[in-house]
Amino acid sequence: MLKKTALVFVAVVIALAAAEIALRAWFPLYLTGAVDSYRYDAETGITLKSDLNSLKMTDYLQEIVTNRLGTVNYQQSFDHYARLVFAAGDSYTQGSGLPADAAYPFQLDLLLNNEHGHYQPAYGVVNLGVASYGGRQSLLRLQHFIHAVGRPDYILYLVSSNDAMDDRLFEQGYRHRHLVDGNPYWGVWLKPLQWLGHECEIGKRVRLAWTMFKRRAATNHKPATGKPRISVAEQELPVLRQLQQIATHNHARLIIGWSGPPMHDDGSYGWMKQWAAENGTGFADWQPAVAADQQAMPSLAMANPHSGGHYRSWVQRRIAMAYAEAMRR
């Protein structure tokens, strides 16, 4: 019996090893995000490490740059800027899937500080975006950097289609269980689990399946009996109201935007635009310009052609231009 069990164990190990080799050679799985660029945070569950200059090649070049403060910026300090602009949000704000100088906050930085063709520091655009953040985490990060950097003159927030789901995962404690450096939840098992979940091809697929299961459970969240299903933007109304309060308290102007493409809108775009108008909040309306671009050039794609996903740099430029225009109003 013992010999038979040993033979079965050896056979399973050999089969797993063969599967791992085959997957690595012919079917590698590239997951979005360079996990070694993040660390545990007691408040938000996960945050970016500071002083990063991370380059990682998968099926595209993943680049993350942060300063000593831990924001996605090349500037180490914003003391020499007359005004501060805080851009909060998730991966669309951080710039996932893009070179570090292609995200919309960086593009906005260049637009706002261009004087006669030269860079003249006037608006310090602080990129607070962190991939996988929902609205509640963005609020916590915003408050932290108001204390760390100073009172902003503008608060920009780009709402994403997965924000409500990410908020539910945050409330359930899932965001505090990421396999990132410094997470006390996993104890001595952290390093082995990081290898299994991030480096092992079989482990990556198991982790991806579990993440999809959790996301599906959060996405299938049903409203109270008798109430119709509402858009993601409407579900984020408490976050928007808190942003209003923070902006008012700091004498800052709030400008919001919707990251979802028009062709996959659940009603959020129109609802947010109307809510902004009714509440004296700015709205960065980039979708019409993108639609006009694609009408003129029908083959022009919005999404990046790799596993990192998200929007191409030309769309990021349009988003930046919409925020700049909203700031000038």
Score class of each variant (00 low, 15 high):
residue 122 A to N: 10
residue 120 Q to I: 14
residue 120 Q to K: 14
residue 168 R to T: 13
residue 132 S to L: 11
residue 195 W to A: 07
residue 147 H to Q: 12
residue 149 V to Y: 04
residue 121 P to C: 04
residue 127 N to Q: 09
residue 130 V to T: 11
residue 197 G to P: 04
residue 170 F to D: 09
residue 123 Y to A: 01
residue 154 Y to F: 15
residue 121 P to A: 04
residue 121 P to Q: 01
residue 160 S to P: 06
residue 96 S to P: 08
residue 95 G to M: 05
residue 178 H to A: 09
residue 157 Y to T: 06
residue 141 R to C: 03
residue 124 G to C: 02
residue 164 A to L: 11
residue 149 V to I: 15
residue 191 K to G: 03
residue 186 W to V: 00
residue 175 R to T: 15
residue 180 V to R: 03
residue 167 D to W: 10
residue 189 W to K: 08
residue 148 A to S: 10
residue 154 Y to E: 00
residue 159 V to M: 14
residue 179 L to M: 06
residue 113 N to D: 07
residue 177 R to E: 06
residue 180 V to K: 00
residue 122 A to T: 12
residue 124 G to D: 07
residue 152 P to K: 03
residue 179 L to T: 01
residue 141 R to Y: 14
residue 158 L to P: 05
residue 105 P to C: 05
residue 187 G to L: 05
residue 101 D to F: 13
residue 160 S to W: 10
residue 131 A to F: 14
residue 152 P to W: 08
residue 168 R to W: 13
residue 102 A to T: 04
residue 113 N to L: 02
residue 106 F to S: 01
residue 177 R to V: 11
residue 148 A to T: 12
residue 183 N to G: 04
residue 105 P to Y: 02
residue 186 W to T: 02
residue 197 G to S: 14
residue 108 L to R: 00
residue 154 Y to M: 09
residue 176 H to E: 01
residue 99 P to N: 10
residue 174 Y to C: 01
residue 153 D to W: 11
residue 188 V to N: 08
residue 117 G to E: 09
residue 194 Q to S: 05
residue 173 G to E: 07
residue 165 M to T: 11
residue 119 Y to N: 03
residue 108 L to K: 00
residue 105 P to H: 02
residue 150 G to N: 11
residue 186 W to Y: 11
residue 185 Y to W: 15
residue 113 N to V: 08
residue 180 V to Q: 01
residue 130 V to N: 01
residue 148 A to H: 09
residue 144 H to N: 10
residue 104 Y to S: 02
residue 161 S to C: 11
residue 120 Q to N: 13
residue 153 D to I: 11
residue 132 S to F: 14
residue 158 L to E: 08
residue 141 R to A: 04
residue 197 G to I: 12
residue 190 L to R: 02
residue 107 Q to R: 14
residue 170 F to H: 10
residue 179 L to R: 05
residue 195 W to R: 07
residue 169 L to H: 11
residue 109 D to H: 13
residue 148 A to C: 11
residue 105 P to D: 02
residue 135 G to F: 09
residue 100 A to E: 00
residue 98 L to K: 01
residue 148 A to Y: 05
residue 134 G to A: 06
residue 95 G to H: 00
residue 136 R to H: 14
residue 177 R to D: 04
residue 115 E to I: 13
residue 109 D to G: 06
residue 193 L to S: 03
residue 143 Q to K: 12
residue 111 L to V: 02
residue 117 G to W: 09
residue 151 R to T: 15
residue 153 D to A: 08
residue 175 R to I: 13
residue 141 R to V: 15
